[in-house]
């Protein structure tokens, strides 16, 4: 019985891991060779070419996007041409809530997406269908066999210079931000790496292979979004700025408060002593009488001649 139980736990772990692997990593159909999408790691999601979905996409695009990007996504003075950018780009910008943008002059910021997953894909497919060049399609990300150690190394080299090594994000020059990487999905990371939104460089397959992108995605989704903080509160992952704040205001501050508690308070000027003729019943310990340190010191106050 006992040995059976002993075997049970690891077996359960293995089964759970297998199940999880199957859930997370569902490789979709092998794609035609599309830019940045070959091999089994990043595969193009099956884009349904059914006309019902595309007409839904067109309706949504006309309602919410065309005022800036033009009625056929050809672009206008307010927004760029979207023909040929690929469904991956559209998916990234819409699913992250960057688009639609209330004010076209403002920098897009992450907000709750306006469209659900199915609507987003419909819009992306519609935009992709407007051009013969397919661009970067929405990828299916499989993390099977991902190496987080490799991912961390690549992250430190390619991502940390803007997003910071903890993924907290930071301000770049000219009012541009490298956004925090908390709460991003695997698909969004792949899309961002491959398409380079905004100021971010585009990392094509010649720079980072699909398996390298997979490793980065694994590192970000597992360790950046869920940092290992055995030392207590992570202080926002912004490093010595937050640490200095805590060290000075909590560390030194508490110590000074303790000194204030143990020591005596306001020194009285000699004139003051004469005017008021004295103190509380406890002598030197101040008016509140609740000062244990003061009591002790009062009873021992002495003069040393120098």
């Amino acid at each position: 019985m006992r040995s059976l139980r002993r075997l049970l736990a690891p077996a359960a772990v293995v089964v759970a891991a297998l199940a999880l692997g199957l859930l997370v990593w569902s490789p979709a159909s092998k794609p035609a060779a599309t830019p940045g999408l070959s091999g089994s790691v990043l595969t193009a999601a099956t884009s349904s070419n059914n006309s019902a979905q595309q007409s839904e996409g067109k309706t949504l695009f006309d309602e919410s996007c065309s005022s800036c990007h033009g009625i056929n996504a050809q672009g206008s003075a307010l927004g760029p041409n979207l023909r040929g950018v690929g469904s991956g780009t559209v998916d990234l910008w819409v699913s992250s809530g960057w688009m639609p943008l209330a004010n076209p002059t403002q920098q897009p910021a992450r907000k709750p997406p306006l469209f659900n997953r199915q609507q987003t894909i419909a819009i992306a497919d519609y935009v992709a269908s407007l051009s013969s060049s397919k661009g970067f399609p929405i990828p299916n990300v499989s993390l099977k066999g991902a190496n987080v150690s490799q991912g961390m190394s690549i992250f430190a080299e390619n991502c940390a210079p803007c997003h910071t090594i903890t993924g907290a994000g930071d301000a770049l020059s000219g009012g541009i931000n490298a956004p925090p990487l908390h709460g991003v999905t695997e698909t969004q990371i792949a899309e961002a790496v491959r398409t380079g939104p905004g100021n971010m460089p585009r990392f094509g397959p010649g720079t980072l292979s699909n398996s390298q992108v997979r490793d980065v995605i694994a590192y970000v989704t597992r360790y950046i979004e869920h940092p290992v903080n055995p030392g207590g509160n992570g202080l926002g992952g912004v490093g010595p700025v937050a640490e200095g704040f805590i060290g000075l205001f909590v560390g030194v501050g508490l110590c000074v408060l303790v000194a204030f508690w143990i020591g005596d308070r306001t020194p009285r000027s000699p004139e003051g002593a004469e005017e008021h003729g004295g103190d509380g019943p406890e002598g030197g310990s101040g008016g509140d009488g609740s000062d244990p340190g003061g009591d002790g010191s009062a009873s021992q106050r002495e003069v040393e001649h120098v």
Binding site: M152, S153, A156, E157, A160, P161, C162, H163, T164, I165, T166, A168, D170, L172, A178, Y223, P227, V228, N229, P230, G231, G232, N233, G234, L235, G237, V238, G239, P240, V241, E243, G244, I246, G247, V250
Partner: peptide, 24 residues
């Protein structure tokens, strides 16, 4: 309060750098 989580930073190599780096 966690201070200086070096495991999140990784080994230093001259060609690797993080943004938002301050001294103590």
């Amino acid at each position: 309060a966690q201070i200086n989580p070096i495991w999140q930073y990784g080994q230093y190599y001259p060609w690797k750098v993080s943004y938002a780096v301050q001294p103590d």
